[in-house]
Design a protein around this nucleic acid. Structure first.
Length: 260
DNA sequence: ATGACATATGAGATATGA
């Protein structure tokens, strides 16, 4: 069972690379972020031609998340609980049949939060509190659970090529990193670090600007967090960094894990 | 020191991103 996460940075603008990568990687489940379209405008038919069902939670212009799955999706939850006034489409969750039971998967687009000290930063931290509360509820189900997506948090210095350049950024603030640790400490496992250890140079995002890709000036902000029941079945992790070198790419690359 | 780059909206310039 291969489960990938990918911030596609507009599904319409990057449909060519999306389809090319699906044909190459053949994942079973793909969590997409920043689809940047309304739910009804999601190009479902093109994905269905490749054998995928789609659950979508979009909005106009910004944000938007989706889950593609070869197997049927059920129990779809759109939106993160805890604030009925939150109109931003950043969370979708679904259940997928797996082996004798089920796998629960969430596609997460955590707020960027820049600049620190702003209302956006307050929203980011509050959103992280809501995610932790919901994750605690899900963990009580004792299911295989994969919470994956663009977390917009650099967990450790080794997750950036130039960590000192990020010290004034919301992605690397002590508060952001502490809240991510709090989430993990509920009993979740960072899949890439479980298998790759402290290996350096594992990045998932390179800015479009200033030749960041050419200089390998990247950061690791797209993560798979696993419940114990999922972590026990983790076999492989893969960062498809070559996709960043394709023509008109997203600024993020797909990250995939396999469970067995 | 600054800007660099890309996308959506909508038809020029602005908001957002990380």
């Amino acid at each position: 069972m291969q489960i990938a996460t990918w911030n596609i940075n507009s599904v319409k603008a990057h449909m060519d690379v999306a389809l090319a990568w699906l044909k190459e990687a053949k994942p079973d489940v793909v969590c997409l972020q920043e689809i940047k379209c309304e739910t009804d405008a999601f190009p479902k038919a093109a994905f269905e031609e490749l054998g995928y069902n789609a659950a979508v939670f979009g909005q106009k212009t910004y944000n938007g998340v989706a889950i593609l799955s070869r197997s049927p999706l059920s129990d779809v939850r759109r939106g993160l609980p805890g604030d009925d006034s939150d109109g931003q489409a950043r969370y979708i969750e679904a259940v997928i049949p797996w082996k004798a039971g089920v796998l629960r998967v969430a596609s997460i687009y955590l707020p960027n939060g820049n600049p620190p000290g702003s209302e956006k930063f307050t929203y980011k931290l509050a959103w992280m509190d809501r995610l932790a509360a919901h994750a605690a509820d899900l963990l009580r189900l004792e299911e295989p659970l994969v919470l994956c997506g663009d977390y917009n948090v650099i967990p450790m210095p080794g997750d950036a090529r130039n960590p000192e350049a990020w010290t004034v950024d919301a992605l690397y603030q002590p508060e952001s990193r502490a809240k991510l640790r709090g989430l993990v400490n509920l009993g979740l496992t960072d899949a890439v670090r479980l298998l790759a250890g402290e290996a350096p140079g594992l990045y998932t995002f390179w800015d479009y600007q200033a030749g960041a890709w050419q200089k390998d000036n990247g950061i690791r902000i797209d993560h798979h967090l696993l419940s114990p029941q999922a972590a026990d079945r983790l076999k492989t992790v893969r960062i498809d960094r070559h996709v960043r070198g394709w023509e008109r790419p997203s600024d993020h690359v797909p990250v995939a894990i396999t469970l067995a």
